[in-house]
Amino acid sequence: MSQFMQATQQNNNLKARIIPCLDVRDGRVVKGVNFVGLKDAGDPVECAKIYDAAGADELCFLDITASVEGRGTLLNMVSQTAEQCFMPLTVGGGVRAVEDVRALLLAGADKVGINTSAVKRPELVGECAEKFGNQCIVVAIDAKRVSKDGEVLRWEIFTHGGRTETGIDAVEFAIKVADLGAGEILLTSMDRDGTKSGFNLPLTRAIADAVSIPVIASGGVGNLDHLVEGITEGHASAVLAASIFHFGDYTVEQAKKYMASKGISMRLDGYEN
């Protein structure tokens, strides 16, 4: 562990977070490889209950088809999922206006993720932050590497679940939305999502170091070392994963204890040592 991380841990008891993510389509949790080829992973309400009992630090609920199909998030499903969550719940998908954020908060979300709409109209981030506070606005950034081998690394934003190219630089965009009032960034690497080959660490680190707000690393987790690297190498404040938890490869408890064994401060309340 770096000296910097040691100094940080001595003066800080804040823990790194593990966030299971429910990608929801048509009311079911699914997980695809690179956002296509979806595979059913169950009922979101049941998943939420299990993850709450397992000591997950937060839960993320993404209605992954909302923007594509041009409809609002499934408020009823969010509400039922929220009933099972006594940990923070972030909900994203299809948020286009301040009213959408209000509706999700009333359905039981604690934080709301904005993705496509923040790219189309970044001022929306500021409008929502002003109304509901920075802490409940999470900007979800889907980024893909555009530089060729040998060139300086560069990533651009993709929207509509990774289907649409925008030409916007991912690091610049992250700085911009942080300035506009985002409380957190959920950063997904499109190159890695569903591949189980680990987070895109240079991308995660470039953005985490460029902004003063927390960054959640997402996309590509295949084993527990990947989670560790997201924090130590990627400088993320939290790590998000779906398949490895949904399909029972690892439990949240195993993941937390493993990360703790690698020197990362984790919340282990409720687990026997």
Binding site: L14, Q135, E184, S212, I213, P214, S237
Partner: peptide, 13 residues
């Protein structure tokens, strides 16, 4: 000292 700590203070403490 600059610990690189993020604001908001967000998470479990």
């Amino acid at each position: 000292q600059d610990l690189g700590l993020k604001v908001p203070h967000m998470g479990w403490n």
